[in-house]
Design a binder for these strands. Sequence first.
RNA 1: GGCUCUGUAGCUCAGUUGGUAGAGCACACGACUGAAAAUCGUGAGGUCAACGGAUCGAUACCGUUCGGAGCCA
Length: 363
Amino acid sequence: MGDDIQDKNGGHPGLPGRRVTARIKAMTIWQIPLRNRVVSIVGPTASGKTALAIALARALREKGQKAEILNADAYQMYKGMDIGTAKPTAAERAAVPHHLLDIIDPAEPMSVARFQKIVRDEIVRLDALGIRSILVGGSGLYARAATDVMGLEPHDEKVRAVLEERAWQEGPSALFAELEEKDPRAAAGMDPRNVRRTVRALEVIALTGKPYSSSLPTYQYAMPVLQIGLDLPRAELDRRIGLRTGQMRREGFLDEARRLQGRLGPTASHAIGYPQMQAVLDGSLSQDEAFEQIAQKTRRLARKQMGWFGRDPRIHWLEALDPDVEAKALDLVGTADAGGFAADDGPVAPTRHHLGDIDRPGA
RNA sequence: GGCUCUGUAGCUCAGUUGGUAGAGCACACGACUGAAAAUCGUGAGGUCAACGGAUCGAUACCGUUCGGAGCCA
């Protein structure tokens, strides 16, 4: 067998370049072949991804197709973290089957690699049943891990712990110096002060003996996918975030956090809002201050998400405020299924102004 | 009314024994492969409350005014 390990791992791009990509595309040999094209809905929090996904699933159902929703959000996978993560409501879940919600305990750690395995298994399982997966998520890395050619290198808790201990003892620059020596290319791609990334690079090198790819693969799908992005003006986004934060407060976010007290693991404890609620429970923060902080952090998250998705040239952007978004999304799916789009590219390369700087002053 | 403290970046505050200023957070932009709602980088913000005095030179010293806080009456 001439099976190439690199390939199995998702391939490390940057070597052969565009030409090979084009050939693979022409042959449509997918790393993960599917009968039903996956639809991935991305965009900032509070842009209406869940609502669009449900509307789309229903519209497809009317056309005699089967489509169900897969959660691609790291924090909504946790049981009990409902209000703070703006999990779809019971009514929404009743409308269309949702998968990958409430699948792990808050104490458990989540990771891109683990998520990649879980979603892909689920996508394949549903596909075999003739069901199309509609992915809904706001985390760029997770969305990419689900649909893109992206092989994750191994991981070992002990190796990492040793490196982290060293970073603590010897300082980050000592570790980075070692990385520069062992893998100059990886080192060139990251900041010496970013301990997290330095540690991971050295971890991979220690485990595989091979250099670490410090940069993300080029945009290439591992399966038939259509990505739809929801865009909206910043002012409107901020307004919605404010409203949603207020709603979380009214729905009892504080009580939810009280129930989860002391049970949040390394990943779950980083979810926006929970540390703030904990501070309220400790008495070190007032509720008003806490919710103001939550809204602020959520706004920042939204900016970050817009930046991340704005860079992906394959996303087909729709205006969230457009009254016809649902119909337009359905059209996109139809066109994609008919082979109307090149496998990896949208019809129009997205430009900066798609991403909500409409309300920029001056001009 | 008297006494004391106080007014520096959007916010909380450093600082200059007199040579026109910084930090954290927020904001803008960016990087990103097993914590990603993470981690990290870069940048833009200030007639140092106002006016006057002394000084080569004031945000800093002196005076007055205005605004805040506290104590005593």
